[in-house]
């Protein structure tokens, strides 16, 4: 998003993405364009804030999930050890089956 100055006037443009292409869209000039530019700025800030919030949330979730994954892995290993000791096996993480013979 940018202002372009030509002669005595400034013209406000927005960048519009369509697929991989980014094109310029003419919005206007004068007070209305200034107001739209301000609103665009607020929207941009809000989007950036939401992205930051999402990233913080992602990090918090990952920190909480870490010990749970640890519990998961150790428990899975103990189940595998117990099942194997009782004569069961499983192929490619499928159902447990008793060894023949």
């Amino acid at each position: 998003m940018a202002w372009e100055r030509r002669g005595d006037h400034a013209y406000y443009y927005r960048s519009v993405r369509s697929g991989t292409r980014v094109t310029k869209e003419y919005i206007g000039r004068g007070r209305v364009a200034a107001l739209i530019a301000r609103l665009d700025g607020i929207e941009r800030e809000q989007r950036s804030q939401r992205r930051d919030d999402l990233e913080i949330d992602r990090q918090r979730w990952a920190a909480l999930e870490g010990p749970l994954l640890e519990l998961d892995d150790v428990t899975d290993l103990l189940v595998t050890a117990a099942m194997s000791a009782a004569g069961y096996h499983r192929h490619d993480r499928g159902e447990w089956r008793r060894h023949r013979g």
Partner: peptide, 29 residues
């Protein structure tokens, strides 16, 4: 062992007990 290798599991089982993984699991939970 985590892949289900029976021989590896058999060798690992006594080590799991010795390493006191059970006690630490309760605390972790």
């Amino acid at each position: 062992a985590q892949e289900g290798d029976a021989k590896a599991l058999a060798k690992l089982r006594p080590l799991l007990d010795k390493a006191e993984v059970w006690d630490s699991l309760g605390n972790l939970a």
